[in-house]
Amino acid sequence: MSTAHPSPAEPVADEVRRVRRTGWSIGLATGLYGISFGALATASGLDVWQAMVLAAVMFSGGSQFAFVGVIGGGGSVVGASLASLLLGVRNTLYGFALTTTLPRGGWRGLARAQLTIDESAANAATAVSPEARRAGFWAAGVGVYVFWNLFSLLGALAGQYVADPGAWGLDAAAAAAFLALLWPRLRRAEAVAVAVAAAFVALLTTPVLPSGLPVLAAALVAVAAGLLPRRAATTAEVGTTEEEAR
């Protein structure tokens, strides 16, 4: 976006300061909803330590909510693990985009992998200079990590005292959390179609498959949609294909 801007380029030092500030605000804002993760985790039957291993080691919001959502819905541990791993695949893609800007090897190599999440990748992507991309990645990554774990602990401690999660609407909160994670991805008609088809596959297979597996069956919708040949008739679609091919 900023590359296409006609005004003279922002000085690197200013850009670094800007993305660093944004990174910390993203960290605080995102970290706050760790409260809902922690509360859902312990209300779903995990203990505080299990919730905190997910927050600190798994450290990927969608995957964590998927894990506790499947367990809370009475699903199997295997189903919960597979659902969280499949949702974690997108972090692999962020690594591809970031591999040239971030230091490799040593503890920094492990830290950059652990901090590779939606927010850090997105904040890095807003910067133009390599210095600012690095600063944006580390500020958002460290910021989210610190606040996410802090607020997850608070939520997990509070969630233990919830005797009936349904009475507090925590089951509805989990569904709403998934909807909120899905919402920003629904910009294109294809995405809406895939989400709706996947929801139907999950509901249709729920009575016949063990709990947790309907979600995985629905993942096949993405595979099928990805393998379908694209209609390349209109200019709009040719445009999107070129954009994707970059």
């Binding site: 969608g62 695949v89 995405a191």
Partner: peptide, 28 residues
């Protein structure tokens, strides 16, 4: 591969909204 990996989280989240919102065990 790029398209499948881009669509995968969308399909999973759509399915999770449905199962978390409209199912109880194996009942809808």
């Amino acid at each position: 591969i790029a398209r499948i990996t881009a669509l995968l989280p969308i399909a999973l989240l759509g399915a999770l909204v449905a199962t978390q919102g409209f199912t109880d065990g194996q009942a809808i």
